[in-house]
Design a protein around this nucleic acid. Structure first.
Lengths: 240, 240
DNA sequence: TCTATATAATGGTCATACCATTTAATCATT
DNA sequence: AATGATTAAATGGTATGACCATTATATAGA
């Protein structure tokens, strides 16, 4: 019936105003806010209150604080930090398993693969090809550290699907996933298998064959799902 | 080669310790941390530093701070707040559209519907039936405010799919979605259509027919997607 | 020209004080 | 005895002022 009336903290109003300035692009990424002492004066509050606000904005990934001369609070590029860290937090809190994460990834990435086949622009395809080729070349020259190439491929694919929300979501899933998987050095086989899969998916996307792209992605991720399965992965997320 | 060594802030170490205590369940939801002044003494730092840490933990949804006698920092139940707020933030930051959100929902919820058909326990089915029945009854008695029932249904369904990560994700999508949709009072037709759809999905899940559940969910969400489409919804998310 | 040093800007932390809010206990009134 | 008002105590919120630590830049010296 009635909505709660509550603005007990001055710092909240300051957070609101700075957020607003960022969202409305009055403050752009890279811009520097005034030093704390000046902000305090401008807002007519103490430095403490300003610092409270900056702390929250920093924790939400909106600004970055640097110390020293010419330091201060800088508006960040849009980033996944807060999204992945809150996902990470939820996972630890409720002890979700790596298997759930893999399954979730499969759900979203099979969909993005299909969408990408419909929507990828010529530039997207170009980027995808570049990524896939680079990965191949690296493999041939004996580089076994395949993970960055994998990240690149899946990111480029998500981007091609033209749905920023799915891109964000799967991006933060993937971050979690790799954090864990980093402990399992990829063997040559795994890397080669991944490179082949990626190539196939790329070709399906290029051909505009959504169903095939979906199916290949499904197989690709299932392969790694099985790898995870053999590790009985449920406790892998409780690292530290 | 070497990993960055960096703990320039004392408050970060305090955050780490308190997080750790929560994740390891040494601190349980509802527990109260010592008053700021005592924590300061225990950690051997000033109150400011403690407050910095508490500010961040609060912003991450791990604790809740209440003022007054018997106030203090209380460990919260696991919650979606930080996840949805960072999603919300990203959406505003990059101005993602409501259509993207709807599409993302469709991707995940069609999958959860299918999974639910495989995995729903008898208790899950009972809850689903209860929810669907309650919604019907409310409609018959002329209650047009259908949204809470819809939330209940989709939540119960997500829970039945036994993948906490998907449940979280779609939960925070839905929050966003309803925030926007609340401005469009649901007409009688929309409510009745939704109630029928939900019933059908429930029956498919109960019958264990995953493909059917997926298809019905697809149709259900597409219907609302079209409604959104007619509103040319792209700017609806820039509310405040 | 290059390197070391001093200087200034700026966030991080501290100590102390007081205010505002909330709970609980006490007291007064009926 | 019950209820309402008053007071007291606990606790977070904010303010001041100070000093420390880090960093970039300017200055001085080799």
């Amino acid at each position: 019936m009635f909505t709660k009336v509550q603005v007990s903290r001055v710092s909240e109003e300051i957070i609101r105003q700075i957020e607003q300035a960022i969202y409305s692009e009055k403050l752009l990424p890279g811009d520097r806010l005034a030093p704390e002492r000046e902000l305090a004066e401008q807002f007519g509050v103490s430095r403490i209150t300003i610092r409270d606000a900056l702390r929250v904005l920093e924790s939400n990934g909106l600004i970055e604080i640097r110390v020293g001369a010419n330091g201060g609070a800088f508006v960040r590029e849009p980033n996944l930090d807060s999204l992945s860290s809150s996902l990470n937090s939820m996972i630890k809190f409720k002890k979700a398993s790596l298997l759930e994460l893999t399954e979730a990834r499969k759900v979203i990435e099979t969909a993005t693969a299909e969408l990408a086949a419909d929507r990828a622009s010529p530039e997207d395809l170009e980027l995808l090809e570049e990524v896939v080729m680079a990965a191949r070349k690296a493999l041939e020259s004996g580089d076994l550290y395949y993970m960055p190439h994998s990240v690149n491929f899946h990111s480029a694919l998500a981007k091609s699907a033209k749905n920023y929300i799915l891109e964000l979501t799967v991006g933060s899933f993937r971050t979690q996933f790799y954090n864990v998987l980093e402990k399992l050095l990829p063997t040559r086989d795994m890397a080669e298998k991944a490179a082949e899969d990626h190539w196939g998916i790329y070709e399906a996307v290029k051909a505009g064959d959504g169903k095939l792209a979906r199916q290949l992605m499904e197989e690709h991720l299932s392969y790694f799902e099985n790898k995870v399965h053999t590790l009985n992965g449920s406790s892998l997320l409780d690292d530290e």
